[in-house]
Amino acid sequence: MSQIQIKDQIPTGELMSSGHFACPGCGGSLAMRLVLKGLGPKTMVALPACCWTIVAGPWPQSSVNIPLYHSPFETAAAVASGIRAALDMQGDQETTVLAWAGDGGTFDIGLQALSGAAERNENILYVCYDNEAYMNTGIQRSSATPWGAWTTTTPAGHPEARPKKDILAIMAAHRIPYAATASVAYPVDLIRKVEKARAIRGTRFLHVIAPCPPGWKTSDDETIELARMAVLTKIFPLMEVEDGQTWRFSMEHPGDPVEPYIKRQGRFSHLGPREIGQIQLDVDARWKMLERRVEMGI
């Protein structure tokens, strides 16, 4: 069938409600909607400070129809581990404990808690929705911000000078049973990974690219297109790592040129052809490395 049909593969239940406070076209809110479709109602969330703190709604409201604990910025994995322990005490093996954090809360301040939990192989699912900066507090760079990007702390004159941290490799290095990437532009793949992760015991990690119109300086309606281009350009390849050793690509990545992706985003508007060429080289080099990982394991 030439028309790609996905409706029959997406669970119809909705655990997220309208009226939430995400910006128009927020990739992070769609990410939660899709992940919850994959997990179902038997889920509890540990939520550190991030945009989602706001998206979840002010008391007495909640935009998700499952228990959700607001917790300090650096503690997602620790709080999730605690909830897990409590459920275990109650003999509840059925409920999935989901830690849901932004890139700042994952790559930076929450990394210690996450590493600890992973090292203990806590029975939790940790999802990082990655909008590539601290968006909730006004677009400050994080270690997930890509090279060359503008943020309020990496202004156009001194844009982000370090490459994006390789969080998937870091998590794989913990030898957790499952780590993967996903994109809101590929809901079937995303939900399949969530369902797969749900059935595994131990620490599971999912890294979801989630475009952010105000932070990326893009139009509200481009979110899915950008999340798709990120994958097709190999900037954000869709992958799975089992037991930290078996690396796999989830689909064919055609390797579209990065330029159109970069050019569509205001946060890269100061970059000239040379810098864009550099990004392409970096993407190509990283791809080679990923191919090696797929071939040989770490």
Binding site: S17, S18, G19, H20, F21, P24, G57, W59, P60, Q61, S62, S63, N65
Partner: peptide
């Protein structure tokens, strides 16, 4: 806000369509 603030309703009261 009570010491242990437990939500009791959805966000449906917010007519975010007005944005």
């Amino acid at each position: 806000v009570p010491e242990v603030a437990v939500s009791s309703t959805t966000t449906m009261a917010n007519r975010t369509g007005s944005w």
